[in-house]
Write a protein that binds this DNA or RNA. Sequence first.
DNA 1: ATATTATGCGTATACGTATGCCTTCTTCCT
DNA 2: AGGAAGAAGGCATACGTATACGCATAATAT
Lengths: 344, 344
Amino acid sequence: MGRKRSNKPTSFDIAYIAGVSQPTVSRALRGSRSVSLATRQRIEAIARELNYSVDKNASSLRSQRSNTIALLFFEEPGPEESTINPFFLAMLGSITRSCASRGLDLLISFQKMEDDWHVRYQDSHRADGLILLGYGDYTLYEQRLTELVDHGTHFVRWGSVRADNIGPTVGSDNFGAGQMAGEHLLSLGRRRIAFLGQADEHYPEFADRYRGLCAALGQGGIASDPALQCDALNFEDAGSDAVEALLATGAQFDAIFAASDLIAIGALRALAAAELKVPADVAIVGFDNQPAASMSNPPLTTLMQDLKAAGELLVETLLAQIEDRPLDNRTIPAQLIARRSTLG
Amino acid sequence: MGRKRSNKPTSFDIAYIAGVSQPTVSRALRGSRSVSLATRQRIEAIARELNYSVDKNASSLRSQRSNTIALLFFEEPGPEESTINPFFLAMLGSITRSCASRGLDLLISFQKMEDDWHVRYQDSHRADGLILLGYGDYTLYEQRLTELVDHGTHFVRWGSVRADNIGPTVGSDNFGAGQMAGEHLLSLGRRRIAFLGQADEHYPEFADRYRGLCAALGQGGIASDPALQCDALNFEDAGSDAVEALLATGAQFDAIFAASDLIAIGALRALAAAELKVPADVAIVGFDNQPAASMSNPPLTTLMQDLKAAGELLVETLLAQIEDRPLDNRTIPAQLIARRSTLG
DNA sequence: ATATTATGCGTATACGTATGCCTTCTTCCT
DNA sequence: AGGAAGAAGGCATACGTATACGCATAATAT
């Protein structure tokens, strides 16, 4: 039965007990070299005994550094209101761990791209920097990013890594992954490969995947047929709609590369409805290796991104940005997970 | 091209421009009634124009209230290191939104139950309170909870709602849900229903579900057979192991109620391996309505918890706790989602 | 008319820490 | 021995806000 209103010990209390001044306590606990080893150990012992912990608000206020970063998810433009992209959710785990291992606190928030999210974090000293996750309308996104840069706000973004990006960006090697998907399908003898996903520059990651696919086709001596590219945003119904549209055009195809697993799963549904066998009639490759990908019927061949590396790199890049260290955009390789949707 | 080092405006700047004192600015922006309407509006206009935002650290330090809550996930004791229980992940979305709508910041973190997680948040004024999510060894959990209570730390916990809980608890109506599962299976003519999941009081939620099932059986005039209860922790392999163990005993059963979808999916795998048809030979009901539940083969009948209500209630209860308002443990009803794993 | 209360705002200060600067005491070099 | 340089720590103060208190002026009561 402890007191309800425990008087939290301060650095002054410790100083008094240790017979030193408050600043010395602060220096000792922060590991300053100008405190003797003996003094520091004495102070540390007292701190431990009192169950002291540094007041975060005071510390952040004084040092103007919160050791906190904010993770902002942007909701998809798709129809579902409440569901969050599972890929980003998975990334959350990895980012959280990266922060924890560096002693950083992590603030998280979901935003609509249209909202004034940039206002809430920039000046309030809530966070030292932002990690931005989410696709969405790239034109609007670019505008926001420009505002952040102009304002001097620190941030990293997950997305398509290009030379002319606004602000530092970390992302998968989407081009390389698209190539792998293409090569995989070519090696299985497929020649007419459809791409389900936006291929325009408003959706740069999808576009990169498509360009990778085209590159693989080119190397295989096959011209890519624009009729086999079919727009789809990142949700399941978009996938089935796209397949239906493709079938309606009468286009011939023996494989599909879907820009995401969600799209691929929708596509599977539409193919089943059209009585097409997977992979006998149509082989299909997804992207993201979501949990659902191994549960689908048949299990989905897909491209797995290294989430652990991704989270690590995001945090590392953001810190570099905050501490004004030089930083280089970097790309994370993907890996093909072959399952029965292509292997049969 | 904004300045990199923008001199953030303070309440003093606003005061100067408005021709009032700094405290008046503070009062105006916080909506104190002791500032005249005219003055307040003038101040608000200036603040908007300067893009002013209250410094969170200073505000929290002075008021001793951070308007931040921390969400702590406890990792499963199971084998997977990096994966997070999808149910809690889904809850995250709902909690985030509840916080956002109340203007609260949300700090998140994953912990091992063994860690000293209670130290980091209690005194540092990082957060006003904690939301605890996760199962795990209940004995250890209880010990930690007692420490929190003794220390006067505010928290709410997701779990089994009982009269003798340590600290406020919000949870699904696991007993009622277990009953629904039982009634559903009984109504389909099943009589020998196995339960996969821990049924002892170290895992109170699973135990509640089991008791609910037994109650339904009792009302149907059927004695529950202890031989049909088979321990399983919350991961996939536990489900298949349990089914294999059950089959090995030679026990007869025509239905399974699994304590979670993960367990159910593992069970499906083992049943398929044993060449048992679902639902013809064995009907199966899961719990959680995870995304994967609709993807399995056959799609899984399961119990859906109202996550939106859950998040809302967790936050509401925590705030009540923080503000010392009276609070009552409350329970959230579940809903049965019937799919082909029972309907055929 | 005087006593009373409410309104609107300024004064002073506290919240708890981190850091620039200065002082003291050693140590070491020439 | 004298002075320079380094080690260890104290002193003063700043970070930006919120709030207890007091003081006018105005409104109301008696």
